[in-house]
């Protein structure tokens, strides 16, 4: 039974592992749907399986039970309409920025010149114009993550998934990058429509998202699907902001 118009449906997803005779439940009965353009954060204590959930959505890992639907079709293996940004950037150290971004188009069947054009365009979008031939060694952490972002965006995915994308960056750089991601998302002429982000930083979640899914500790279950009804741009020092952060934090205890 698929939901009509559901962009992304996660239905009763559970995941468990059997390791050295022991049975470990990582996720249990996770269900939620996204059916309009929005930013969703997934937060929870460490070890609660948020990264695992992300990888199930993207198609890396199969759920032990339940399924993930993208526009009504079950996700099996990697889906062209989704892209992932990694916590530690996952760039190939021996490829230039441009070549790294081009990897994002590996799946796509278009002539090479078009690929290069698209890569250039998205490199510009993330503010790395001028660095196309640089290698990751020459880049700062923030710049590397921009490459990761560019690579994820270059194939115009409908859903952008991010796994703790800013946790390896310093506070100032992370701030800039968060705003850049929001800008890209808000821009109607660019994909993606939906952003799903895993983070352990609740303030970050409240700053960026429309919804915050709070997971419990292992085995992870959805405790709450919290709606953030603040208008953007959001003011971190406003009392409403604090209230949201407090409310979510209290769900952990």
């Amino acid at each position: 039974m698929s939901r009509v118009g559901g962009l992304l449906d996660v239905i009763d997803v559970s995941k468990s592992y059997a390791a050295s005779g022991k049975h470990i439940d990582v996720l249990r009965d996770i269900s939620f749907s996204i059916d309009k353009p929005e930013v969703v954060s997934i937060v929870g204590p460490s070890g609660c399986g948020k990264s695992t959930l992300l990888r199930i959505i993207v198609g890396f890992l199969p759920p032990t039970k339940g399924k993930v639907l993208h526009h009504g079709e079950e996700v099996k293996g990697v889906d062209l309409g989704m892209s992932l940004v990694f916590q530690n950037f996952a760039l190939f150290p021996w490829l230039s920025v441009q070549d790294n971004v081009l990897i994002g188009l590996e799946h796509v069947q278009i002539p090479h010149e078009q690929k290069v054009e698209k890569a250039h365009h998205v490199i510009q979008e993330v503010g790395l114009e001028g660095f196309e031939e640089a290698t990751p060694k020459e880049l700062s952490g923030g710049m590397k993550q921009r490459v990761g972002l560019a690579r994820a965006l270059v194939r115009d995915p409908e859903i952008l998934l991010m796994d703790e994308p800013f946790s390896s960056l310093d506070a100032l750089t992370a701030e800039t990058l968060r705003n850049d991601v929001l800008r890209v998302w808000a821009d109607k002429s660019l994909a993606p429509n939906v952003v799903v982000m895993v983070t352990h930083n609740i303030e970050e979640a409240v700053y960026m998202s429309d919804r915050v899914l709070v997971l419990s500790s292992r085995p992870g279950r959805v405790i709450e699907d919290y709606q953030v009804r603040l208008t953007r741009p959001r003011d971190r020092r406003s009392p409403e902001f604090y209230k949201c952060v407090d409310e979510i934090t209290s769900l952990f205890t």
């Binding site: 310093d170 100032l172 750089t173 992370a174 701030e175 800039t176 003011d235 971190r236 020092r237």
Partner: peptide
């Protein structure tokens, strides 16, 4: 790096 300068500027802007 420029992103840190911009980061600082955005903090100022927020304040």
């Amino acid at each position: 790096h420029m992103s840190r300068v911009i980061g600082l500027m955005e903090i100022l802007n927020d304040n």
